[in-house]
Simulated scan of single mutants.
Amino acid sequence: MKRLSLLISIVAGLLVAGVVASALPAADEPMAAIPVGVTIGGVQVGGLAPDAAAAAVQQAFATPLELQLGTTRVLVTPDVLGAAPIVDKAIERALAAQPNTPIALGVSIVPGTPLAFVATLAKRYDRPAVDSKLSLRHLRPWLSKERAGRKLVQRQSVRDIAAALTGGVRTGIVLTHTTLKPKVTRRNFGPVIVIRRKSNQLFLYDGSRYRLFFAVATGQSQYPTPLGRFSIVVKWRNPWWYPPDSPWAQGETPVPPGPDNPLGTRWMGLSAPGVGIHGTPSDASIGYSASHGCIRMHIPQAEWLFNHVEIGTTVFIVSA
């Protein structure tokens, strides 16, 4: 009887062991693999187990983005942009997909992070346009070379970066910028006048390019024409002449436009108080230091010059 009970126990134990063994997977049974040819965010994951596929997608996503700003190249990793891949859901879709199916990779982006990065980039990259600057060298006008500026289009750049992150693009990401043109260039600078006081000569330049020369009269020794850099601030046709507050004009009265007006028919007033370029009925004074500080010209030449200069035209007066 004892032998029969022992035999029954052994048989029952073997049956239970068999059931348990059949319920457990074999030690070498492979895990489910993603169908052949499936990609996630452009990464080939076909034939990989879920964990291996997730690691491959994570590694590829972490590749830095190469941003192009003109000739400047900037590398930035997705985490700096506040971006992270949504891998789990992509793996689920990949496991259920048909072979050779491309699976889009979802990306979460922390709001405002790309814009903050682009704003920082703009501070380094943006530069204002630089106008051409005028100076006098060797008695001639000299103009520095203008320089174009540039400005990153920030909102569009954020959209371009987001598209690259979600599309799996990592190279050739060209960020949009605008070119800022200088307002004043060597080509469009306009007229410049150089007056040589000692030699009583007026030179007209188009920017730095010589154009014409005129003989003029400048101030007497007791009323010298001031030296320096000035500009034309007013232009009057057929001006009145009003006596200045100076000893030589004591007792004089205003003179209306006409042949006896000491200013001729044109007045180009300078930023030097009381000083201007004007015509004169006293042609014999031209070529001499004969005025009370102004620059006299023959009337026809003053009329011509009046039409070829502007308010704001720079006037250099030098001692030469």
Rank of each mutant, 00 (worst) to 15 (best):
G251I: 02
A96L: 13
I10C: 09
L202G: 00
R140V: 14
R209G: 01
G112R: 07
T314R: 11
L69K: 06
L105S: 10
D260Y: 12
I109D: 09
K145Q: 15
I232A: 06
F117R: 12
S319R: 14
R124Y: 10
V158P: 04
P111K: 12
Q250L: 10
I10P: 02
S22I: 10
S289K: 15
P244F: 13
R209T: 13
I86K: 12
Y125C: 00
K133N: 14
Q68D: 07
Q59W: 01
Q301M: 10
A215G: 13
P141V: 04
M268T: 05
S282Q: 13
N200S: 09
P35Y: 06
A272T: 06
M297S: 02
A122G: 08
P300H: 07
R155F: 11
P273C: 11
V153L: 15
A56D: 02
A32I: 15
A104R: 14
R140S: 11
A56H: 02
I40F: 08
M1Y: 11
M268R: 00
V36F: 07
L227C: 06
L305G: 03
G41P: 07
L81K: 01
H292Y: 13
G70V: 09
P259I: 13
N200H: 00
T101W: 05
A54E: 11
T71R: 12
V174Y: 11
A52W: 01
V194C: 03
T265L: 10
I195V: 15
M1K: 10
P64V: 09
G42W: 09
L65A: 08
Q201L: 13
A33M: 09
Y210L: 11
R93Y: 09
V57E: 12
L305T: 05
G287Y: 00
P256D: 08
L105R: 03
P259C: 02
V130M: 13
V87S: 00
A32C: 03
P25I: 03
R3D: 12
A12H: 04
H292V: 09
P99F: 09
W236M: 07
D79T: 14
L15C: 07
G167H: 04
I10T: 06
I277Q: 02
A55C: 06
I317G: 01
V45K: 02
A116Q: 15
R150K: 14
S291W: 12
V43C: 04
P244Y: 07
G149T: 05
R124P: 03
A272V: 03
L165R: 04
G312F: 13
N188A: 10
P78C: 08
T280M: 04
L134M: 10
A62G: 06
G82K: 08
A84C: 02
A217L: 03
A215Q: 10
A116P: 05
